[in-house]
Amino acid sequence: MFRLVGRVAVALLIVAEFSLADTVIKDNRDGKMYKTLASGNLNWFTDNLSYRKLASFTDKGGAPYYKQSTWKAACPVGTHVPDIQEWTLFAKDRFTGPRKLSNVKSFAGKTRGFYGNEDAKKIQGKDAAYFAVSDPNGVRAMMLDVKRGNAKMVELPAGAITTVRCVSERNFYAEKNVDEKKMILTDPRDGKNYKVELRDNRLWMVTNLKFSLTSARQCLLEDTTFCKKFGRFYNYNDAKKACPAGWHLPDDGEWRDFQKDREKLNWETIGRGGCKDWDGYCNSELTGHYWSSTSIMKNTGRSWEFRRQAKSIDRTDQNVQKGLYVRCVTELN
Rank of each mutant, 00 (worst) to 15 (best):
F2R: 14
N117G: 14
K53S: 15
C219T: 06
D279I: 02
E254F: 01
S295C: 04
F233K: 00
L203C: 06
R232T: 05
G159W: 10
A63G: 02
C227K: 02
D200Y: 11
A151Q: 07
G31D: 14
N319V: 08
L203I: 11
K110P: 14
K152N: 12
V5C: 10
R140T: 05
V329S: 15
M1R: 14
R170D: 05
G288W: 01
R327G: 11
I313F: 07
T88C: 04
G125M: 04
G97P: 03
E197K: 14
S212I: 06
K276F: 01
S168I: 03
K100M: 02
V77L: 11
L89K: 13
L220E: 02
C243D: 03
V167Y: 07
I161G: 03
I296R: 08
W71M: 06
A21F: 09
Y325R: 13
M33H: 15
D251G: 05
Y290G: 00
S69M: 06
S284N: 00
R217I: 01
S215E: 05
D277K: 01
A55L: 12
E305H: 05
V15Q: 05
N41T: 12
V8I: 13
S39A: 14
S212D: 14
Q68E: 08
C275M: 03
V8A: 13
M33Q: 13
T214F: 09
R307V: 11
R94E: 10
L156R: 09
E155H: 08
N171M: 09
F90Y: 13
R302E: 06
K35T: 13
D223A: 03
F230G: 01
R165H: 10
S106P: 01
L265H: 01
P76V: 04
L13R: 13
Y34V: 07
G191T: 07
L20P: 12
M142R: 08
Q309E: 12
K322W: 04
K176V: 10
N28C: 10
H289L: 03
A120M: 07
N150C: 00
T96N: 00
L49W: 06
D30V: 10
I270Y: 09
M143L: 10
E331G: 13
L89G: 13
E254C: 00
Y130E: 04
S134Y: 11
R170A: 13
S215A: 08
I14R: 14
K32I: 08
A120I: 05
L265R: 00
A38H: 11
C227W: 03
V146H: 00
N150T: 07
Q309T: 14
Y173N: 07
I161L: 12
F114N: 00
K241V: 04
A151C: 07
F18N: 11
K121D: 14
D47C: 02
V24I: 10
W204E: 04
Y236V: 00
K210E: 08
K121C: 11
H248W: 04
S102E: 04
W44K: 03
P136Q: 03
R307T: 09
S56F: 03
G253W: 02
D127H: 06
R199L: 06
E169P: 09
V146R: 01
R148P: 00
K182I: 05
K105C: 00
H248S: 03
W204M: 09
L220C: 04
E118L: 10
K240Q: 07
V24F: 08
